[in-house]
Design a protein around this nucleic acid. Structure first.
Lengths: 303, 303
DNA sequence: GCCTAGGTCCCGTTA
DNA sequence: TAACGGGGCCTAGGC
């Protein structure tokens, strides 16, 4: 721990800062708390806890006044607790270990990570690498935060299936909570649906004479992307893929074709088309063995 | 914008705070910059830019002194730029719109989001919901940040395939950069590999008399999880799944079996086993049609 | 709730 | 580099 005199000076500075913030912006609230914690090597590690932006209850702001013992953990916990209660998003950064148990089980030793807790019950633990979180909890979980001695512990649970994520912070360098509003109206192009629309708009792209009859037609083996007939009246099954395909897509198409062959009258010929930008060698060979056909087409015309 | 007198008061408070931080902790550096920006409704929105924790170059700290015009955007940009240059992780929170173009293309209208830029070239844009980022860029990308008038723009590119992510912040409420060290030694149990080990340890679990001969044995159709022989000398192909399986797993097993039937002598019988905790109804029917067998087994003994 | 299949899937491994 | 298959996959859409 830093010596008392120095921390007291810090706290004063912070309080002044904080007080100014509230008088300045009226309805908007800020609190910044600075304290030191002891890291594994016994050295003092500066810790900043930041509460910022709009719509944060005033009660939280006042809490800074009461930071006396282990202020960093207490304050961090309070902020995260507020986020959970009020439906805010919380981010924590610090040195932590992580345990997970549920569909599988994992242990992650101490390291510095960014933890994100979302109001929808999502939890993310991100290391310095990778697009995927090293540990996580899907939406719908219940988050809890508590202090355990010097450490801050975040727990996230769900049922069906029963799963628990535990993040134990040895030190917390940074906490921030945000009142997030997002209409999240993502518009995406280049999907399989775009590929489908291209064919429905001009079925001759697949083959001259092709006539689509249904999309998502049900068979005992599952739903067919496009079902129709060719110029000779044969049944046609089309499986669409937005990107280069491997053997799995061929098997999928084959399942549908075989299922329809049993379902329809015995004399009906069922042709299977795989539509994708390209195929791998092994998939191409499988197509040949199964008597299936391939049409090269991408979701976007220019690709 | 807030009036000049008020911002000046803020800036003074911040500087004092900042100076104290440096003298207190020596090698560790902090900078906190507070400023106001104008939101869409024309109101003043408080903005906090936070630079915290270890190993941050001093030059960045000094930059607070030069915050004169559009301090929020300039400082935010500087902090993110530092993170990119120095291999730090950066988080930004604010109101932004997002565009992506690459394997697909997307547009996301204005909303409040958390953006994470990792030193390995990963970019994440998280809204208030969902485990998956609403937009992202995988590792290996090159991040750039720049100011464009009042807005801060983050760009992330990669080649092979050519992909660009653009995040344009109308306002930035919070920026933090972190020097992350993580040995990321995740230990995971309950995987397909555990399931494999259970069978290799006691092959009779699959069937009395079963003798494993190889794992990942190559066939023209791909690698077989476990290859072996039964008590009668028939070839055995085992496909493992850590969880309840659907039709795709049956097709996969079927590909391997058919491939081996062609590869081996004609008179050799090839039996196919699907090992998983359970199967869906449709998958079960497919197994029957294909003459394949099912053994119920989970990665963990107690499941 | 389960089932089915898509995904800018990501990710590791191997040829 | 591409290909192949696993994943605590996640997610949307049906039933």
């Amino acid at each position: 721990m830093a010596n008392g005199a120095q921390r007291s000076e810090w706290t004063r500075a912070v309080r002044g800062f904080h007080a100014g913030a509230r008088s300045d912006f009226g309805s908007c609230s800020f609190a910044v708390v600075v304290a030191s914690s002891v890291n594994g090597a016994g050295g003092a590690v500066p810790t900043v806890l930041l509460l910022c932006s709009q719509g944060v209850p005033n009660s939280v702001i006042e809490s800074g006044e009461r930071a006396r013992v282990q202020p960093e953990t207490t304050e961090a916990s309070r902020l995260v607790e507020t986020a959970i209660q009020e439906g805010l998003l919380a981010t924590l950064f610090g040195r932590c270990r992580v345990e997970y148990e549920g569909r599988a089980a994992s242990t992650l030793k101490e390291g510095e990570r960014l933890v994100v807790l979302k109001p929808d019950g999502t939890a993310l633990v991100h290391s310095d690498e990778g697009q995927k979180p090293v540990n996580w909890q899907p939406p719908g979980c219940t988050h809890e935060v508590q202090t355990d001695g010097d450490s801050l512990v975040v727990r996230s649970r769900r049922e069906t299936p029963e799963e628990v994520l535990l993040v134990e912070f040895e030190s917390v360098d940074h906490v921030a909570i945000f009142d997030v509003t997002d209409d999240h109206d993502l518009s995406l192009t280049g999907t399989e649906e775009d590929l489908r629309d291209r064919i429905l708009e001009d079925p001759s792209i697949l083959e001259p004479g092709f006539e689509p009859r249904a999309t998502e037609r049900q068979t005992p083996a599952g739903a067919v992307d496009i079902y129709g007939v060719d110029g000779d009246g044969n049944a046609v099954v089309v499986e669409l893929k937005r990107r280069r395909v491997g053997p799995d897509a061929v098997s999928q198409l084959n399942r549908y074709v075989e299922s329809l062959e049993r379902d329809l009258h015995a004399e009906t010929t069922v042709r299977g088309f795989l539509v994708a930008p390209s195929v791998t060698e092994r998939a191409s060979r499988l197509l040949g063995e199964r008597g299936l056909e391939f049409v090269s087409l991408a979701p976007s015309p220019d690709t």
